[in-house]
Design a protein around this nucleic acid. Sequence first.
DNA 1: GCATTAACCACAG
DNA 2: CTGTGGTTAATGC
Length: 226
Amino acid sequence: MKSINCSLCILKSEAAKNLSSGELNILNQSCVEVDFKKDEVIFKQNAMSSNIIYLQSGMVKLVIEGPQRKQILKIKKAPCYLGLPTTMGDKINHYSAVAVIPTRACFIDLNVFKELLKLNPDFSYEIIVELCKNELEQFHRCVNLVQKQIFGRLANNLIQFSEDLYNADEFDLPLNRNEFADLVCTSRETISRMLTELAEENVIKVSGKRIKILNKEMLKKIRENG
DNA sequence: GCATTAACCACAG
DNA sequence: CTGTGGTTAATGC
C-alpha cells in the first residue's frame, strides 16, 4: 500500500487542521488514497458505505436515482468531504459520487472517523459547520427549483459554475447537455435551446462545453427574475 | 380563446 | 452527442 502523509491535507481541510499529531497518526494509518479518472464511480447508491471520503483534488457529481429518472444533486469540488450524510446517516449510500474530472480522494475508515469526532471537539465542530452549510444550500436549491422557471435555474447554475466552482468567467462544463439538464432539472432539449438563446442575446458565449459569461449583470437579472 | 412554458418525439449532422 | 422543428399538455390571462 502506498504510504500516506495526512499532514499535507491539513493545509486544505478546515477540520483536519485541528487534529493533534497523535490523531493525525491514527488518520494516517487508516487512510487510503485513490485516483479516479473522469466518469469513474467513487461510491455507488445502494452499496454498503463504510468510508468517509475526503476529496483532495478534482471535482465530482452527486447523483441520485429518483422515482422517474436520475438527478444530479450537486457538483462538489475539492477540497471537501464526501458522503458524510450518506455514510453516517444509513448503512447504505443514498446517492452515488462520480468523478467529472480526474480526482484524488482519501478513503477514511468510518470507525476511525467516528473516533476522531469523539476525541477532538474542534475537529467535530468544523465538520458540523460543513454539514450545516450544505443543508442551507440544499434548502435554497429546493425553493429555487420549485419557484423559478428554467431560465432562472439555468442562470443560477451558470453563475455557480463561474463563481463557486471555477472562479472564472470562462470555463469548460464538466457535463454533457443531458447531465447538465439533470442538474438544472429539465430536459436536454430545453437546455440546448436556452443556451443558444442566451448566446444570441450575447449574455454568454457557447462553443461545445466551453462557456464564457459575457454579461454577468444580465445573467444575474435572469437568475432573480427568471 | 390565446399566449406562454416546457416536455416529448423525431431526425439530421 | 447535440441542435432544431413539430406537436402537445398545462397554466394563466
